[in-house]
Design a protein around this nucleic acid. Structure first.
Length: 527
DNA sequence: ATTAGGG
DNA sequence: CCCTAAT
């Protein structure tokens, strides 16, 4: 990754990093690599004399990742000679940036005894240290802890050179400069309440992330400090805590925030509105450009919001597409499953796999999209209810202009896994082609699924099942568009397709017995 | 009214 | 999903 990338795509990168670190969690290898990247970039930035704000952000990023860091200063220096994204690197700047980087690491890495600053201070007595302290901070100190003084001084010196993260606090997702230097001790106040604090430490247990007390003990050979740092009233421990806390990552912006950001980037998408009148005005983004919403009253009395687009001056009505994420039912899915136990069981029997597990996986995946806007929640709730009752037929109605000037309604309702399974079940019982029968049997409660829908879906399933599974190529999209049909189901579809090819549905008088089981067995699931 | 197939 | 021809 190049430094330029960071500069241009600052926010998203930040989110990405945070995302990676958080989601991958214990994948410490991942964490390491990104940290390395970060440090490289930061050096590039410091050297290329970017604005202070950028530097601050970078520092924040460093903090964000450091708790899981096992990165040593040695690596850091090696990297300096390596590529840093093409940023020119005068040799005379080397020391400066090196020390700055070291200073950043000093408070976070236990290996700081090797640092120049401390080595020099090492020779001084406490009194001399006091003097240095006074010279550095312009005030006296009563602290007698040599270690504390040394580190304080070295930190203070560093802070005067570079932009220190301890001089800033986070407020409303912005970096705000703190007051005087001594206040840096208090900066932690803004960090302690961070709910995300500690997540990385927990996740990355593989690395020596406990920067604080434990590793500190080995350092304090000369120190008179006792082992119980927790109750240590000495301000030295306070300093320790400060260092720990400044190392905490800053709060990751909410998903909502990210969405809005990307929304701005992808210009056209921000023009979308809720199509459902129920949701109108809830959380939508004000449409930009010159398109303005228009309410159409259809012939059947429904009102549909469309957009009178001024493009080309034709006044074409383009439907607003619902911005909310359509999703499968969450809660009632299980209920449906339970009530359909036998059917599912029979399906599983052939697939020799636990479909219930798949369901849980799906639900879990959904749950991870936990940050939802209010409208989304409502939408989900509504949809869930609709799915179980199956009576909401006029949901998600949009109008599409036809060539003849007419307006045709267009429904869209994502197929849930349950529905797909019901469909497969039905096909296995009645055979492909007897869609009305299948609808009667398996989709009696789903009024919005017509027999044609079943047929279409089956067609799609066939297509999907015979298309070889693409090995997730460059399409590394984070959002897999929709829940892919679980392989076991596809297998079943394939199987049924073959069976059906051999045994055409026109079986005359007798009930079609396509599957391997007799129809009475499977029928019992619905009676 | 249902199905099949194209769009 | 929608539309429509053909049963």
């Amino acid at each position: 990754m190049e430094v330029g990338d960071f500069l241009e795509d600052d926010k998203s990168e930040m989110h990405d990093v945070a995302d990676t670190v958080q989601t991958l969690g214990c994948m410490c290898n991942e964490g390491l690599s990104s940290e390395k990247t970060l440090i490289e970039s930061s050096e590039g930035l410091l050297k290329s004399k970017n604005s202070k704000v950028d530097a601050c952000k970078l520092n924040a990023r460093l903090e964000e990742c450091f708790p899981s860091s096992t990165l040593s200063l040695k690596d850091n220096h090696i990297n300096q000679f390596g590529d840093t994204g093409g940023v020119p690197k005068p040799p005379d700047k080397m020391m400066e940036s090196g020390s700055s980087a070291a200073a950043v690491c000093a408070g976070l890495n236990f290996d700081f005894s090797k640092l120049k600053g401390e080595i020099c201070l090492d020779k001084l007595s406490i009194r001399e240290l006091h003097e240095v302290f006074k010279a550095t901070f312009g005030r006296e100190t009563t602290v007698k802890d040599k270690l504390w003084l040394k580190r304080r001084i070295s930190m203070g010196l560093t802070n005067s050179c570079d932009i220190s993260t301890t001089m800033f606090m986070i407020k409303d997702n912005n970096l705000v400069k703190k007051g005087d230097d001594e206040g840096s001790k208090d900066v932690d106040g803004s960090f302690t309440h961070d709910p995300s604090v500690g997540t990385i430490d927990v996740n990355c247990k593989g690395s020596p992330s406990s920067i604080g007390s434990q590793s500190e003990d080995h350092q304090i050979g000369s120190g008179k400090k006792l082992r119980n740092h927790g109750v240590d009233l000495d301000s030295g421990s306070e300093q320790l805590h400060t260092e720990q806390r400044t190392a905490k990552r800053m709060r990751k912006p909410t998903k909502r925030y990210i969405e809005e950001l990307s929304e701005v980037d992808s210009r056209d998408y921000s023009q979308r509105l809720m199509s459902s009148p129920k949701n109108a005005g809830l959380g939508q983004i004000a449409p930009r450009s010159f398109a303005r919403p228009v309410r159409n009253v259809l012939s059947d009395g429904r009102t549909v919001v469309t957009r009178l687009d001024s493009l080309g001056g034709l006044g074409v009505h383009v439907p607003y597409v619902s911005r909310v994420r359509r999703s499968r039912p969450r809660k009632n899915v299980m209920a449906l499953m339970m009530s359909n136990e036998s059917g599912i069981a029979s399906l599983c029997a052939r697939c020799s796999c636990n479909l219930k597990f798949q369901f849980f996986a799906e639900l879990e995946k959904d749950r991870q999209h936990s940050v939802m806007s209010r409208s989304e929640l409502e939408e989900n709730l509504r949809r869930t209810q609709a799915d179980s009752s199956g009576d909401n037929s006029d949901d998600n109605v949009v109008t599409v202009p036809t060539a003849k000037g007419g307006m045709r309604r267009k429904h869209h309702r994502a197929w849930t896994l349950v529905e797909v399974m019901k469909l497969v079940e039905g096909v296995s019982k009645c055979g492909a082609g007897r869609w009305s029968d299948i609808k009667r049997l398996a989709f009696a409660s789903y009024s919005y699924r017509t027999s044609v829908d079943l047929k279409d879906k089956w067609r799609n399933l066939l297509k999907a099942s015979f298309a070889q599974a693409p090995p997730d190529d460059v399409m590394n999209s984070r959002k897999p568009t929709s829940m892919p049909i679980p392989e076991p189901i596809l297998e079943r579809v394939r199987e049924l397709a073959e069976t059906n090819a051999r045994v055409p549905p026109n079986l005359g008088t007798s009930k079609p017995t396509v599957g391997s089981r007799n129809s009475q067995d499977t029928m019992s699931g619905y009676l």
